[in-house]
């Protein structure tokens, strides 16, 4: 049996961790070979989050799971999150900005308030969490932003979502340069069709068994923050079936 390579200082926070890619990423990073001693699972309060935390905690006794309930559609959440992290003396080395929101609608039907909510969850929250991590001097080494292929090419009916994910891709490009002096590797991953609840909202008639699964994306994330991932640095890594 391989000895668990746990580095006491390696901690990750994953947003949108109650379901889909976020939950699978938590499961994946809890594996002993990932070397994380702490996983902060952030999502809105739900039974799924509690169950997910319990499940992830059962994977590896050397990896502590912290449940952090917050609604990232609220701009005040980031301050709250860093207050919790400070109070528990948690120092993040990896941040996975995965939480996503969409309500597909055309230009005729999209409401500005919904566009604002989409931007808050998908763009402004990651921005606030990254800025907060810097201002609170977290020793980040990896930042993973989950974008989407919908951000590379806009798709009719998905205006707000496409625009928000395009912003995540551009923001990541800037951060890759700006965070160099901190020694932080910025990874932007753009999954294509992936069997998540968000995908069900975007494509309700699609059979989820025919497309990429969240645990496959999670495996890519695990690889990207491993030493091997250093060889795969990319502007925007597209993963799709």
């Amino acid at each position: 049996m391989i000895e668990a390579a746990v580095h006491p200082q390696k901690s990750v926070m994953i947003t949108g961790a109650s379901r889909g890619i976020g939950l699978e990423t938590a499961k994946s990073l809890a594996q002993p070979e990932s070397g994380f001693s702490k996983i902060v699972m952030l999502a809105r309060p739900s039974r799924e989050l509690s169950d997910g935390c319990d499940h992830v905690a059962s994977i590896n006794p050397n990896c502590e799971v912290v449940k952090l309930e917050a609604d990232l559609s609220d701009p005040a959440s980031a301050d709250y999150v860093f207050g919790v992290l400070d109070s528990q003396k948690i120092r993040l080395t990896t941040l996975v900005n995965n939480a996503g929101y969409t309500r597909p609608a055309s230009i005729n039907e999209a409401e500005i308030s919904d566009f604002q909510k989409t931007m808050q969850v998908n763009v402004y929250s990651p921005f606030q969490l990254i800025q907060g991590a810097l201002r609170h001097n977290h020793p980040l080494t990896h930042l993973i932003n989950i974008a989407s292929t919908a951000g590379i090419g806009g798709r009719s009916g998905w205006l707000t979502y496409s625009a928000s994910k395009a912003a995540v891709i551009s923001m990541s490009e800037v951060l890759r340069e700006e965070l160099k002096p901190y020694g932080i590797d910025v990874i932007c991953l753009s999954p294509g069709r992936c069997a998540t609840d968000l995908r069900k909202t975007l494509a309700p008639d699609e059979d989820p068994n025919t497309i990429m699964q969240p645990d496959e994306v999670a495996s890519i994330i695990k690889l990207m923050i491993s030493p091997l991932g250093q060889l795969l640095k990319s502007q925007n890594l597209v993963v799709r079936t």
């Binding site: 800037v174 340069e177 700006e178 160099k180 002096p181």
Partner: peptide, 11 residues
């Protein structure tokens, strides 16, 4: 490269 020069000594 995106930051005020003085920031590098501080970072």
């Amino acid at each position: 490269c995106g930051h005020p020069m003085m920031a590098y000594a501080v970072i």
